[in-house]
Amino acid sequence: MGLLNNTLPDNKLVGAVDTAVGWGRKSSVWPMTFGIACCAIEMMAVFAATFDLDRFGAGIPRATPRQSDLIIVPGTVNAKMAVRVRRLYDQMAEPRYVIAMGACVCGGGPYVKWGYNTVKGVHKIIPVDIFVPGCPPRPEALMDGILKLREKIGREAVFARRNEANTQMNAKYDAVS
């Protein structure tokens, strides 16, 4: 949607189009097949029969970052892995979303004190939309995180002018990457 991004005035017509686009986006959030540690097993449980993430249109894990909208970071990110996580995020197409799953990626978790090579929270590397704490979080918690993300996507302005804080935040990240 390139040139039109956040340039149109914020009126009722543009708002209605935004709502329609947002509904389309939030109903097919495709996550990336990306497992790091223990939380990845709970993430797999969410995709499997009992919890069935497909109900929310997010049940098709994509094997490549270029086809996926959502990266769930499930498990401790260490110094060696952080470079790769960053690169995976950079390879994803906009709009892209990040869920930090588990205590380690939310802020260090059990490895916060003595972990000489763990990154204390993946938000030091990439911007995070939703934090799901727990060690590991129960599948219900991850599902709740995805529902919250759907709400967030649905509210997003696509064509209308974004509010000031949102724009600044994006400009900051664009400057780095």
Partner: peptide
């Protein structure tokens, strides 16, 4: 480590 921050 490089540009990766390791502190809380």
């Amino acid at each position: 480590f490089g540009e990766i921050p390791l502190e809380l």
